[in-house]
Design a protein around this nucleic acid. Structure first.
Length: 329
DNA sequence: TGGAAATGTCTAG
DNA sequence: TAGACCTTTCCAC
């Protein structure tokens, strides 16, 4: 999936283009028709991410609905919770704000898509004026006709957001939002500072389960997926099979701090560049070519960038695990 | 046209 | 642990 950084970027996109606006909600595919009718015509009052969950808060126009308790810093009784799962993606159409000053707008955030032989970046594709695909993908008419299986369409006067392929897309109460967040491990962006770090270290080091498995466990830490998992263990020189209880506290702290830094970088750039050996030129090249972004992920059989040992590939709890058996001990 | 693959998670046995 | 589920895309046949 879109790992945690992508969901935070999606939350920002909604903050920029939907929050404060009245939203028409529909389900072109039909599978979310009931939920859509509960939200249609309400104003989006906030947008939050925790790990891989996206929460969009709604309230009646001109009448914040009087919720007495804040959840994720918002008083809202009606929320849309979305989890993209493995293939989910949001597509934005119409007026789409750039997420970086001076940057291009983002058309699509979520699972990678391959189109016309052009591999899109992980999670998203830029549609600045030079992008030849813009003419293909952005018809003049607004809103554009839904393409494919659009579970939900959120529509303001000027911007449309289409959701396809989510694992979860459901209208929830603030209590249900609270429950999901409480059950999840810390996310550096919503559990910042020492509290998140302490929680992470405690949950990682108390169990004998393999650290490679624990990093993917969203109850231990939120937002890490298969790529960040492999790359963080490589950066920490940790054997993925080492039990969490065998990871020294200081090493666990370093893992958390690395996650904080990687997540910040991913949110800022929209791209997972996890190699430590790149200079500015190398990063520039990696932005354009995803095969240059990672040290071990997707590089099975190729020599380790640190010690030359062939990168190993195995299955861990049903997911592909890449690591260097030479220098991850 | 069918199968496989993809940054994920849940449930039944 | 296997299977189900969400969707799109490429590739072998």
């Amino acid at each position: 999936m879109p790992e945690g950084h992508t969901v935070h970027r999606i939350a920002r996109q909604f903050e920029a283009d939907f929050v404060g606006r009245r939203v028409a909600v529909s389900s072109p595919q039909g599978r979310f028709a009931d939920g859509a009718s509960l939200l249609d015509g309400l104003v989006m009052i906030g947008s939050r991410a925790h790990g891989k969950h996206l929460f969009l808060a709604f309230a009646p126009e001109g009448a914040p609905d009087g919720a007495s308790v804040e959840v994720l810093g918002l008083r809202a009784e009606r929320w849309l919770r979305v989890h993209l799962g493995l293939y989910g993606a949001w597509d934005f159409h119409g007026q789409v704000s750039p997420l970086l000053p001076g940057g291009g707008a983002t058309a699509s955030l979520g699972a990678p898509r391959v189109r016309r032989g052009v591999r899109m970046g992980e999670g998203e594709r830029s549609i600045d004026a030079d992008d030849a695909e813009r003419a293909i993908d952005e018809p003049d008419a607004f809103p554009p006709d839904p393409v494919g299986q659009v579970r939900v369409r959120l529509l303001t006067d000027v911007t449309a957001a289409d959701l396809r392929g989510p694992t979860a897309c459901v209208v929830v109460t603030r209590e249900e939002v609270r429950a999901v967040v409480d059950a999840a491990g810390p996310d550096p962006r919503s559990t910042p500072g020492a509290e998140g770090e302490e929680l992470f270290v405690e949950r990682l080091t108390r169990r004998r389960v393999a650290v490679g498995q624990l990093l993917m466990d969203q109850a231990v830490v939120s937002g890490i997926g298969n790529i960040y998992r492999a790359e963080m263990l490589f950066r920490a020189r940790l054997d993925p099979y080492r039990p969490g209880s065998g990871v020294p506290g200081e090493v666990a702290r370093e893992l958390w701090r690395d996650w904080v830094a990687l997540l910040d970088d991913g949110i800022r750039t929209g791209v997972m560049i996890t190699r430590e050996d790149l200079d500015d030129g190398g990063r520039e090249a990696a932005l354009a070519d995803r095969s240059l972004r990672h040290a071990v992920y997707g590089r099975a059989g190729e020599p380790c960038l640190r010690c030359g040992t062939p990168v190993a590939l195995a299955e861990m709890v049903g997911r592909k695990l890449y690591w260097c058996p030479g220098c991850q001990v």
